[in-house]
Amino acid sequence: MWSVSAIVGLLIAGIILGILGRLFAPGRQDIPFWLTILAGIVGALVGNMLAGWTGVANTAGFDWWRHIFQVVVAVIAVILAASLYPRARTRA
């Protein structure tokens, strides 16, 4: 079961990684902020899994590779979200 602190930590990580994902993604991402946070949460979870699979999840000192995986996955998630999110309709 997820604790409240784990959920709050994941939400904060989602905000930070979502913003970094939008910053590093090429072009303009016309998506709402909640979708940016969701892309960041995906980046955090999938990035942690990739770090675990490659054996760099728990290293001595700062986990550079884990965070690099998280940012890269967040960028990919933002790009996918921007391409799949319906565009706003133009008014006639």
Rank of each mutant, 00 (worst) to 15 (best):
S3L: 15
V4C: 06
S5Q: 15
S5R: 15
I7G: 10
I7S: 12
I7N: 11
V8W: 10
V8M: 12
V8K: 11
G9N: 14
L10R: 05
I12D: 02
G14A: 13
G14C: 02
G14S: 05
G14F: 01
G18M: 05
G18N: 06
I19T: 09
I19P: 09
I19K: 12
G21C: 02
R22K: 13
G27L: 08
R28M: 04
Q29T: 08
Q29Y: 02
Q29L: 10
D30G: 08
D30T: 09
P32L: 11
F33G: 09
W34M: 10
W34L: 14
W34Q: 13
L35C: 03
I37S: 00
I37T: 02
A39G: 10
V42N: 01
G43T: 03
A44H: 11
L45A: 14
L45Q: 10
V46P: 07
V46T: 11
V46H: 04
G47E: 01
N48K: 06
N48H: 11
M49F: 11
G52V: 11
W53L: 15
T54D: 07
A57V: 04
A57G: 10
A57S: 11
T59N: 09
T59A: 13
A60L: 06
A60F: 04
G61C: 11
F62D: 07
W64F: 13
W65S: 14
R66Q: 07
R66H: 05
R66G: 06
R66M: 08
I68N: 02
F69Y: 15
F69E: 11
Q70C: 14
V71T: 07
V72C: 04
V72R: 00
V72F: 02
V73H: 02
V73K: 01
A74V: 01
A74L: 03
I79A: 08
L80Q: 07
A81H: 01
A82P: 10
S83A: 14
S83I: 09
Y85T: 15
Y85A: 13
P86D: 09
R87I: 05
A88F: 13
R89C: 01
R89E: 06
T90D: 14
T90G: 15
R91L: 15
A92N: 15
